[in-house]
């Protein structure tokens, strides 16, 4: 079964959205317009801190995963309520022997996702000109481009 859900994440004031590295657990931000630019498609992301790479589905933040799970849960609740509602009707016809009672399941509130402005520094990659916001201490470490993986 495949169902399509659609939702939006509100970026920070400059249109950046938060991601999470599956290797080192650090958060960074990418510009929504660059992340979803169909002219420059990409499969894998590099973590700007540790520089390791994995397919981009692995970089969603906890909040996004939670939201997807909530939306999927609510969809399931809707389907179940619908199915049981119909069943209840057919069981409870006037001369039916078996009676059925059923309380509909409650849906969970879906939170709105909004990225706050934080103290990260924005970097532009000299190679592909795309951007990343990271927590940065000058000289302490390298920052890697999340799209092409080179050091910035």
């Amino acid at each position: 079964m495949s169902v399509e859900f659609s939702f939006t994440i509100q970026g920070d004031s400059e249109g950046y959205v938060t991601f999470l590295c599956p290797f080192c657990g650090s958060e960074f931000k990418l510009r929504a317009d660059e992340y979803q630019n169909d002219d420059k498609p990409f499969e894998d992301l590099f973590c700007p801190y540790c520089g390791l790479t994995k397919s981009k589905d692995n970089f969603y933040s906890k909040e996004v995963i939670e939201k997807v799970e909530t939306i999927a849960y609510n969809y399931m609740v809707e389907q179940l309520n619908d199915a049981f509602g119909k069943m209840k009707k057919s069981f409870n016809k006037p001369h039916s022997i078996i009676k059925m009672d059923f309380k509909p399941l409650k849906k969970v509130n879906v939170k709105e996702l909004k990225d706050k402005d934080t103290i990260e520094t924005a970097f532009e990659c000299g190679c592909c000109n795309r951007h990343v916001k990271v927590l940065y201490c000058a000289g302490a470490s390298k920052v890697f481009c999340p799209y092409c993986g080179v050091d910035i």
Binding site: G15, D33, Q36
Partner: peptide, 25 residues
Amino acid sequence: FAAEFGMKVAVSTAVGTVTGFDWYK
């Protein structure tokens, strides 16, 4: 609007995928 709400998310879940309209285009 696009800067604030335009993030199109393509997430694969157990139940399906998420898509949206390309405001930047």
